[in-house]
Amino acid sequence: MLRTLTRAVVRTATTSDRVAGGLARFATTLGQCALVVLGVHLAADDLDDRVLASLSWVVDQADLRLAGPVETVAGWFGRPAGSWQWWDALPLGAMSGWTALTVELVAAGLLCGSFLLTSRTAQPTWVRWKRALSVQAVVLPLALSGVLLAGGWSLSMAIEDVLPVAEAAPWASRAAAAVVAFAALLRFGLPAWLRAVAALEPPARWTAGWAAAVVLLPVGALAWIHGVPVWGTLRHALEAL
């Protein structure tokens, strides 16, 4: 009786595990896209701050250089000068937010599109990559790797935020978050990167992909700079030396 019950439990567990695994593997591409979206957003959040700072500078310069001429022209038309200083009323916060959001959506679309319809098992080779050498072949792997690492960090922060704060062992939630992040990078990040690089085709011209690079370069750079949590640690280590 006990043996029968044990067998039934084991069989159920094995079957359910197989079903769960099948479901997870079926939705692997979805997980890969989600990791990309998380990483791109971390970079876009930083981009938002930078766009806001740039817009503020532009408005300040416009005010400094254009206020006088605009007042003169407004005077010719008998209009109050203040009403023509359109830059004073610009909603800079919303403008930077929507710019960052647009860049984020385009970058996420380009990066997910680079592996979405490719073979899940394709492996890149050095020879194939050299044959595909172009702007795209250089920018895409670099940007995608930064974004995936940033996605892993964003996931670890999300996990850490939902875990109860263990005052006795604060490192426990950090360790759990790190384990999940590394698991996600190995399960989703690395295969997504391999798929994208393996799918690079020999280009008609070496400039192929320059338009996409305009979006992917800043996003990738910000992901590498602010989405990979090693630079601060490295700097502290260097300072300590």
């Binding site: 939705a27 692997t28 979805l30 997980g31 998380l38 999940v180």
Partner: peptide, 8 residues
């Protein structure tokens, strides 16, 4: 793991 990534 997949659920965690999607929820995040």
């Amino acid at each position: 793991l997949l659920t965690g990534v999607l929820v995040a």
